[in-house]
């Protein structure tokens, strides 16, 4: 064990938290701690201070956000899995949440923490990209929303100012013509870091794809959208052959969990499998 001797700021409310964030930008924000504590214990992270957000009531719960949903930054995976509104709006996100670690992690870890940790293998991130989620960030200067698609600027780098905190994850309303998908290929069926993840959303109107989101995790420095594939899908019936273009969008690497070759091939195959299943479904329902 390595115990951090660093001080922990414990704000009583969000306003105090933002003031502390502005005053101590070097303090590591701490939500459920399921990632941060691992880094501290292994000695890979030793920040000079922490900012404990766990007690902030303003960051809890799921609220309506127009037609969509606003998931407070302290919303745990277990909470979102059990929430009927999240189940209806983002079934793929619920599916993803169920693959995060196992029960003990889902009970403590937060969706916003997954976003903030910015791991290329963050389980929820491809789905959030596919759903066009937005990240609400706040500072003493005010609040703004960053589209997931613009959040990551490099390996574990976020487009946040040093005084900003993530306060919520916002999900748009589910369009009736949307199909969502999540697939995780990991090292095992629970407690697994992914080798490849796919988050997908297709809007199919009149037999034609009108909007496509295809996002992958664990295949680049941060979770990415496969824009070549997306472009190829739009404007025609679902075509599984679009999966063959995936090589233009992702550049996976070898590491201790898998190989670049495997990741690229599996990304193509699971995307192809999903598209083929959607196409088959469409064909049978139109009959």
């Amino acid at each position: 064990m390595i115990t951090s001797h660093a001080p922990v700021h414990c704000p009583a409310d969000l306003a105090e938290a933002l003031a502390l964030r502005a005053a101590h930008p070097e303090a590591m924000p701490l939500a459920g701690g399921t990632d941060v504590m691992v880094f501290v214990e292994s000695g890979t992270l030793s920040p000079p201070a922490f900012l404990n957000l766990w007690g902030l009531a303003e960051l809890r719960g799921v609220q309506a956000d127009g037609d969509g949903l606003r998931l407070g930054a302290l919303c745990t995976y277990t909470e979102l899995e059990a929430d009927a509104r999240v189940q209806a709006t983002a079934p793929a996100l619920v599916e993803a949440a169920r693959t995060v670690g196992a029960k003990q992690i889902q009970n403590r870890g937060t969706l916003a923490g997954n976003v903030a940790n910015a791991s290329p293998a963050g389980d929820s991130l491809p789905v959030l990209l596919a759903l066009d989620a937005e990240v609400e960030v706040a500072s003493v200067r005010g609040t703004r929303r960053i589209p997931m698609d613009a959040l990551y600027t490099g390996y574990r780098k976020l487009a946040l100012a040093p005084d900003e905190l993530i306060t919520a994850i916002c999900l748009p309303a589910r369009h009736p013509a949307d199909v969502q998908y999540y697939r995780k290929v990991g090292t095992r069926l629970a407690q697994a870091i992914s080798k490849v993840m796919l988050g997908g959303r297709l809007r199919i109107e009149g037999g034609v794809v009108t909007e496509a989101r295809v996002a992958f995790g664990s295949v680049a420095a941060f979770p990415v959208r496969a824009r070549t594939v997306e472009a190829a899908l739009v404007g025609r019936p679902v075509d599984a052959a679009a999966a063959d273009l995936v090589g233009a969008d992702i550049k996976p690497i070898d590491d201790i969990r898998s190989t670049a070759t495997y990741r690229l091939e599996v990304a193509r195959r699971i995307l192809q499998g999903w598209l083929a299943a959607v196409a088959a479904e469409g064909a049978s329902s139109s009959r």
């Binding site: 922990v8 701490l30 003990q104």
Partner: peptide, 24 residues
């Protein structure tokens, strides 16, 4: 947080005690 041998309940929810700072 992989093996679960340190699982405890906090307010009724199972968590890994190795991943919870006592301040929380």
């Amino acid at each position: 947080g992989e093996c679960g041998a340190c699982t405890v309940l906090i307010d009724g929810r199972a968590v890994n005690a190795c991943l919870v700072p006592v301040v929380q």
